[in-house]
Every structure is written in C-alpha cells, then in structure tokens.
C-alpha cells in the first residue's frame, strides 16, 4: 500500500479515532472524558480506557492481530481505517472531541448494518473498533509509525 500521509497527519487521525463507543465494560464512565485530539499518546491511552480497560483493549487488539497478522503494522491499519482517504485528516482536525466520537460511532453502526464485523475472543465487533484496538495494542508495544 502506498500511503500519502505525513507522520503528523497519521497520528492526528489515529488520535481522533479514539472516540470509540464503550461497550458496557467497567470503565464506561470514561466516555465522559474529553479526548484530546492533538495528543496521540494521550489519545491512545484514552482509547484503551474507552474500550473498558487497558487490558481489554490490548487483549482484543492482540487477538485480532493474531487472526489477521498482515494488519500488524500501524500504517496498514491506518490505511484500512480510511485515514488515507482524501480530505480525511483535514476533516478530522476540524472536529471537536464530541463530533469525533459521533463520527466514529456512525462508522461503527454502519459496520454492523453492513455486517462488517469480526468475532474476536467471542466478541462480535465492528471492523472499525477492532482495528482501533489493534492500533492501541501496537502503539502500546512500541511499534513505530513511520
């Protein structure tokens, strides 16, 4: 895949994607937290919190990557999440946290409506959210984004 994204654009986009909806795990209250769109490190931490707990997000992410090892690279996942779509990064940067969360929620629901789901550790998850988990897991493990 040929990517046309700067490092900053990717990270900004990734941090935007952390507004994933919680699914009822303990820690769902963290939904009320603001997600700092411009801080990728904090964003990734919040992603894991929003998914319930750090451990849960990591487990889901690792399990998914074990199923689909060809996606075990941040830039590949970023591309699959649509961050290389024209205008995506600019669109994301213009949104506040609440709007970003709504955008991601729409994508999740659209995934389910179109049966774009995957079963990971028994969970039925949307492709979008499971790839976000995978990104969180990769970044936690120190994978380079280049």
């Amino acid at each position: 895949m040929q990517l046309h994204l700067s490092r900053r654009t990717v990270l900004t986009a990734l941090s935007a994607l952390v507004g994933v909806q919680a699914v009822g795990l303990r820690g769902a209250a963290a939904l009320a937290d603001e997600v700092p769109a411009a801080d990728p490190v904090a964003g990734m931490a919040n992603l894991r919190v929003l998914l319930g707990c750090n451990e849960s997000a990591d487990r889901i992410g690792r399990a998914y990557l074990a199923l689909v090892p060809e996606e075990a690279e941040p830039m590949v996942l970023a591309g699959l999440l649509g961050t290389d779509e024209p205008g995506f990064a600019e669109h994301v940067e213009a949104l506040d946290a609440a709007a970003l969360r709504a955008t991601i929620a729409d994508r999740q629901r659209a995934d389910f409506a179109a049966s774009r789901t995957v079963i990971v550790r028994g969970w039925m998850l949307s492709r979008t959210e499971v790839r976000l988990c995978a990104l969180a897991s990769l970044l936690k493990s120190g994978a380079a984004v280049a």
Binding site: V23, A105, R109, F112, I119, G122, W123, M124, S126
Partner: peptide, 22 residues
C-alpha cells in the same frame, strides 16, 4: 445470535459476546 449482535451494534445499544467456546 448473529442478528442479536448486529442489531446491538447497529443501534448502538451494546455488544454481544458468544458464550463459553470460541
């Protein structure tokens, strides 16, 4: 169960996890 999981996700109501056994 598939329909239940898809509907929970589509409506944003929640998520479904299959029972014991992958």
């Amino acid at each position: 169960l598939d329909l239940l999981g898809l509907e929970l996700g589509r409506t944003g109501v929640g998520r479904f996890r299959i029972g014991v056994g992958q």
